[in-house]
């Protein structure tokens, strides 16, 4: 089933058109990876999903992105509730300047969860889901800046999970991490797709091949090819896709 559909999406940074008539389904409870050479518009597309572009003046969308049949690009969408349905994990870990516990509770408190027991329960659950609980359970009160890079990234994932989003958007979220942390997060993504839908931008072809169910290749703001990961990597329709996934291009 498609949780989201991108329909003839154009996106403009002021005058510069960064996405050109992109059509793409996002399947529910699956991992879709976005690949393509630098500057092709992967981040731009990902940030359309949670309307991050609205933070800056001059940005403009055309077309449609539906999430459960609701057009999230329409003007009357409440961005605050939209962003609690689609979490985002960035390239560099972004722990907030507060304790581990408060980081995870941040989104819950925004949503007026005040009860102490309820907070503690959901913080624990999120940390367990993000495979971080055992490492931090004795230091929940410590500042999150003291965690390692890989732990910080899992902290951010836990923080996102705590508000029970429908989708999590990853933007090269393992590119700043060591191989072991990367592997942990990849395993985590596969585990998480039981509960959430994942869209992940990556430059790492092995990663895309290993973890994702569907792959979309972008080039110069357009969607070149989309399909299930296996066929994209073994019998792509376009010559360019073949060259890109085998590392001979881009």
């Amino acid at each position: 089933m498609d949780l989201m559909t991108v329909d003839k999406l154009n996106f403009f940074y002021g005058r510069h058109q960064a996405l050109k008539s992109v059509n793409l389904p996002i399947r529910k409870n699956a991992i879709t990876s976005l690949i393509g050479p630098s500057g092709c518009g992967k981040t731009t597309l990902l940030r359309c999903f949670n309307r991050m572009h609205d933070l800056y003046p001059g940005n403009r969308y055309e077309g449609r992105i539906s999430l459960r049949d609701q057009n999230i690009l329409s003007g009357d969408i409440d961005l605050i509730s939209l962003r609690s349905r689609l979490g985002m994990v960035f390239q560099k870990p972004t722990p907030f300047p507060m304790s581990v516990f408060d980081n995870i509770a941040y989104g819950l408190r925004l949503r007026k969860v005040k009860n102490k027991n309820a907070l503690a329960e959901r913080v624990e659950k999120a940390l367990k889901q993000a495979a971080l609980w055992d490492e931090v359970k004795d230091r929940l009160g410590d500042n999150a800046a003291g965690l390692s890079g890989g732990q910080q990234q899992r902290l951010v994932i836990a923080r996102t999970l705590a508000v029970e989003p429908e989708v999590i958007l990853f933007d090269e979220s393992t590119s700043a991490l060591d191989p072991i942390s990367t592997q942990k997060i990849e395993e985590l993504m596969v585990e998480l797709k039981k509960e959430v839908t994942i869209v992940a931008v990556t430059h790492n072809m092995q990663q895309a091949a290993r973890v994702s169910d569907y792959t979309a290749l972008m080039y110069l703001g357009e969607l070149m090819e989309y399909g299930d990961t296996k066929s994209i990597f073994t019998r792509p329709k376009h010559k360019m896709t073949e060259e890109y996934v085998s590392g001979r291009f881009g």
Partner: peptide, 24 residues
């Protein structure tokens, strides 16, 4: 990036300033 992370959690601007920016 820190503000964006807070916005991405669905925080309104004044909460981002109060809880994240001032704290930093």
């Amino acid at each position: 990036a820190l503000r964006e992370a807070a916005f991405a959690m669905g925080a309104p601007y004044h909460r981002v300033i109060w809880g994240i920016v001032y704290r930093s």
